[in-house]
Design a protein around this nucleic acid. Structure first.
Lengths: 194, 194
DNA sequence: CGCACCGCTTAATCTTGTTTAAGTATTCCG
DNA sequence: CGGAATACTTAAACAAGATTAAGCGGTGCG
């Protein structure tokens, strides 16, 4: 398991000493995955936070009508946005699925609790991660309300060309909050213009 | 300034000792407000986090077309959800407005930084606040995608009857992501049924 | 090889919610 | 008290996006 990515992610926000680094690395669990594999199933006990060390994952929610809603994608160097694994809660409502082959690093809930208690640096790190997460979610909500599907698609390809390349269209559609059919229509229109 | 509310909010998540309590109270600034008053204006330097000690506030965003989008309401005992004041950033894009007469407690950004450094309890408190905030925002996004405006309105009145009583309809409409006209239509329909 | 499945596309029809516009009720304020 | 904003309602025309259904192309597998 190569752990440069997660260490550099931490060091963007806090400075860990060698002991803390070792402590972190010692509790991470490598979890290789294959394209299409369901890594965490909604309804199951939420035991971990998931960091993408390699490849792509997505976190999504199945509503009461059986429709899926993609909450976010996570490429290498990102946390999956199912953070129920960080709470002393029984289950997560979210699924997390592999979109490509790759490797996740699992951080067990109990280890999180332990890290948080052992050093303020960890409290600080997760405080910042959640602070940014909250801001990102707010921004996404506003964009969903105030811009058309076509605009959202355009800004998505501009912002995440790598995800467009790797991820199936139906998941992009779900992320944008539209049907695959409508995304196809938008793409047809954009291709005709270009 | 009576500060029971904010202390009891903190004590829901962390246990502060007397020194920490005094430290917190000593940096809070009382900010009484009148109904309709703009407490924080979008585009201005973000200097504070705002805690509602009495009355109701709302945080909203004005998009590039000039339409407003209510991000959240904050009644007594809640933080306003503009958390830009907690970052070392220049400005906030969000407005915060008084919906009733009341009092906000302002927590200056520099004081936050100071609290965070002086005790892990404060890191922990804000970590939990942002963690919950992120989850709330995710939930809201999913609801916006997966349920009709009528359902959202019904669950809103069920969950926040006090806000319905205090807050103008056009702001509720904005919060639900619909036009005031359409909310009026929904209300008409529900009244006819009942 | 063949066929079943899955993802993408296209197009017609339908729904939800918007826009525009007009009218009514309230509240604020001199 | 009176007049002017401002909030809410109603209704018709309209638009964005959903639904349904059909067809097409690749791909995995017996």
């Amino acid at each position: 398991m190569v752990s440069n990515l997660i260490l550099s992610n931490f060091s963007e926000h806090v400075q860990l000493n060698e002991t803390e680094k070792e402590q972190l690395l010692s509790v991470l669990i490598s979890r290789p995955f294959k394209r299409g594999e369901l890594i965490v199933k909604g309804g199951d006990p939420a035991k971990y936070m998931l960091f993408a060390n390699e490849g792509y994952m997505m976190t999504y929610y199945t509503d009461s009508n059986g429709s899926d809603h993609v909450i976010s994608f996570a490429g290498a160097g990102w946390w999956a946005s199912d953070i129920y694994g960080s709470l002393s809660q029984q289950t997560t409502p979210y699924h997390t699925k592999a979109l490509t082959d790759g490797e996740a690093l699992l951080l067990p809930r109990l280890s999180i609790a332990h890290l948080l208690q052992s050093s303020p640096s960890f409290e600080r790190y997760f405080r910042i991660v959640f602070q940014k997460g909250m801001l990102r979610q707010q921004k996404r909500y506003i964009e969903a309300c105030s811009t058309s599907a076509e605009e959202r698609y355009r800004s998505f390809i501009a912002a995440y060309p790598d995800i467009i390349a790797e991820v199936q269209q139906k998941y992009i559609a779900s992320y944008l909050g539209i049907t695959p059919e409508f995304l196809s229509k938008i793409r047809g229109k954009l291709a005709r213009i270009a």
